[in-house]
Amino acid sequence: MVKNLSVNLCGVQLDNPVIPASGTFGFGEEMAKVYDLDVLGSISIKGTTRDARFGNPTPRIAECSSGMINAVGLQNPGIDAVIAHELPQLRKVFHKPIIANISGFSIEEYQECCAKIDGQEQVEIIEVNVSCPNVHNGGMAFGTQPESAAAVTRAVKEVTTKPVFIKLSPNVTDIVSIARACEEAGADGVTLINTMLGMRIDIARRRPVIANKMGGFSGRAIFPVAVRMVYQVAQACHIPIIGCGGVASAEDVVEMMMAGASAVQVGAENLRNPFACKEIIEQLPDVMERLGIERLSDIIGAVK
């Protein structure tokens, strides 16, 4: 029997739950030469800010056991260039709903960018990255306190019409309180988790491997943390969750969905295997068959 892989995120129907995570797929241009992007459920595009950003000095990357650290620093051409160049280019090679990932360093910047991207027909979901430092509050990341996460959510909801997913940072004491604050502030969903703050040291040179000293740890190693946080939030909230963090196989997709995710993002795995998302989608029907799953959406939150 043909397996049903489709899932629904706040009324946005995806043919399957597999989405390349923001920052691990660019704006699709390079990957469109690697495989037909229309096999994907959606694409979360490279994190976009109001102004063009070069990001951090290099080295920006460090290898870790079963993972990696990156400190790219939100390199992107800025919201206007994304709308003028990247989205039209992506439209030529990808014909499905797009998730626009937006970052900001102030509430006003989030609002301005989200309002602009909300007007783009191709964009069906807005994903708000609250892991950036708030320049008006001593650089504390918006996503590390329930109040500031809620403030961003409310501000963005005021100026948008499309579903807003808040992408949460795992670098917090209580992920549930932050997810709840976002839900109460009007978030339509949450994406979790962003990268975990990490660091590597070059012991021969006695200095950090990464120029920025610290960076975001991602890859297979963080998968159990992501599953745990998705599960905790799913138990406490009623809005859909996009699970993200260390997903590398069709089995991981099923596990993340059983924990409570309605869709799943694949991040660092794309960097080591450019075909990762495509292969996971191809393997899903066999894994479903083995596990006796006919409709993938039936297993969302199966673990109580």
Binding site: T24, F54, T58, R60, I61, V72
Partner: peptide, 26 residues
């Protein structure tokens, strides 16, 4: 430059050049 992906999607190896930001891998 230390690279992440090696094929242009992660921006891990970007440098500033006289003609703008470029990826060493791409």
């Amino acid at each position: 430059e230390r690279m992440g992906c090696g094929f242009g999607i992660c921006m891990g190896c970007s440098i500033q050049t006289a003609s703008g930001a470029k990826r060493v891998c791409k």
